[in-house]
Design a protein around this nucleic acid. Structure first.
Length: 410
RNA sequence: GCCGGGGUAGGGUAGCGGUUAUCCUGUGGCCCUGUGGAGGCUACGAUUCGAGUUCGAUUCUCGAUCCCGGCCCCA
């Protein structure tokens, strides 16, 4: 009877872990070079933090629990809300903009499928304090740069919700939300039915249906013909001009909505090939959440990268230093330990821990894909030297440990 | 929550009503305490779980569970 790993979780073997850490470090390097700072928030939070943001409906998809003090808690399902909470709790007095990032595991009680797990990792960025196009553009460009750095060619779709919201501003808030959700899900038939049912002005109906279908290079011009010279369209254009300057490749897509009320301006999504139904690897936008959590009226913009999905399509291989394996006799075991300690500041070193014979040790070195074997027998020990064997060529030479170190550094 | 396809040693597999459950690989030991990738010998190791049908189930039926894919959802 063995205990199996919980559903929707994964064990990462050494080879997997090496790849993941490698990609993670590349992403970290890029985001740091853009001036963002890493933060860590708790693995669990008050349940209320997430119901406040996303509604009571999400509880069914949470790993929530009551703790021993009768508090309603949950493992975090995402990190935007925790970061906003952290900001409200202890960073409001800092000068803006704040440029933060995180790389953490999240938990959702959902049915696992390709690219979807119950424990998954998100790499995210939040830029707090600016609602300018410059901030939006920096965030999109950074996302694009990060994906490029790990060799992923994504399809980036961008939109500015100001335009559609301007169009809908004559409607009630409730109606606007419902429409945004339908647009997000691309349920265009249901959308038309709803518009008919609520007796929306026919002018608005026509414009809306046409607007959300606009994509591609001339979409802005077409939108201008539909809605006129509104300031939201000018803001959208400003963003696109910046993106062009960043040399980001994008597709204008008035159909991207994100069905949540706190998305107000820029929104974007990135899709990658080869992921089946879960092809979105990145999603983000500018939003207003801080007020909801009891802070000031501070605008933010950010995105989350689905790290597991990135790993699914990412093919970059980490390079690793080939280890050195010390091969010793029963009589020179202690010499092997001393030599290992001298070499370990420079390379990964293995010594025999199984009391194996000479041949088996060499065979093990071969299995470990060692670059070199360092052989220490009675003869070498007596001479105060070691035999350095190149495992590739098979050549070997008698050297002092210092000479070995010098040689390994080359 | 719903719909498909699956589950045999650590990995990959054969058997499809009665087998000592097949083979490959792996791992440990030995051949072999001074030179690796090979070989030989040997040991280890599996029918996902539960119920039913049957004289007898790895094999058939049902349920559960887990895996793979899809729907819903996706903050």
């Amino acid at each position: 009877m063995t205990i199996s790993r919980p559903r929707g979780t994964r064990d990462f073997l050494p080879e997997d872990t090496r790849c993941r850490r490698n990609v993670e470090n590349i992403l970290r390097r890029v985001v740091r070079n853009w001036g963002f700072q890493e933060i860590i928030t708790p693995t669990f939070e008050s349940l209320e933090l997430f119901t406040m943001k996303s509604g009571e409906g999400i509880v069914g998809e949470l790993y929530n629990f009551t703790d021993k003090g009768d508090r309603e808690m949950t493992l975090r399902p995402e990190l935007t809300a925790p970061v906003m909470r952290m900001y409200v709790n202890e960073m409001q007095a800092r000068q803006r903009p704040l440029k933060l990032f995180y790389f953490e595991n999240c938990f959702r009680y959902e049915r696992p499928q390709k690219g979807r797990f119950r424990e998954f990792w998100q790499f995210g960025v939040e830029l707090i304090g600016s609602d300018k196009a410059d901030a939006d553009a920096e965030v999109i460009a950074l996302a694009s740069e990060m994906l490029k750095a790990v060799g992923i060619r994504g399809d980036l779709h961008v939109n500015h919700l100001g335009v559609i919201r301007h169009l809908l501003s004559v409607l009630e808030t409730e109606q606007q939300s419902r429409i945004m959700r339908l647009v997000d899900k691309k349920e265009y038939q249901a959308l038309e039915d709803y518009l008919a049912e609520m007796n929306a002005p026919s002018d608005l109906r026509m414009k809306l249906i046409e607007l959300i279908d606009l994509t591609g290079n001339d979409a802005i011009e077409k939108a201008r013909m539909l809605v006129g010279d509104i300031p939201e369209l000018a803001a959208y254009q400003e963003l696109l001009t910046l993106l062009d300057t960043y040399r980001v490749e994008y597709t204008i897509d008035f159909g991207i909505a994100r069905g949540l009320d706190y998305y107000t301006g820029m929104v974007f999504e990135v899709y990658a090939e080869g992921l089946g139904a879960q092809k979105q690897v990145c999603g983000g936008g500018s939003y207003q959440l801080i007020k909801l959590f009891g802070g000031g009226d501070v605008p933010s913009t950010g995105f989350g990268l689905g790290f597991d999905r990135i790993m699914e399509v990412c093919t970059i291989e980490p390079e690793e230093a080939k280890p050195v394996v010390i091969i010793a006799m029963e009589s020179t075991r202690l010499e092997a330990v001393k030599t290992a300690m001298q070499l370990r500041p420079h390379v990964p070193v293995h010594i025999d821990l199984m009391k194996r014979n000479f041949k088996a040790q060499l065979s093990y070195a071969n299995y470990l894909e060692a670059g070199y074997a360092v052989i220490i027998g009675d003869k070498e020990a007596a001479a105060g030297k070691v035999m350095l064997k190149d495992m590739q060529s098979g050549e070997q030479e008698l050297l002092t440990v210092e000479e070995v170190i010098r040689k390994l550094r080359v």
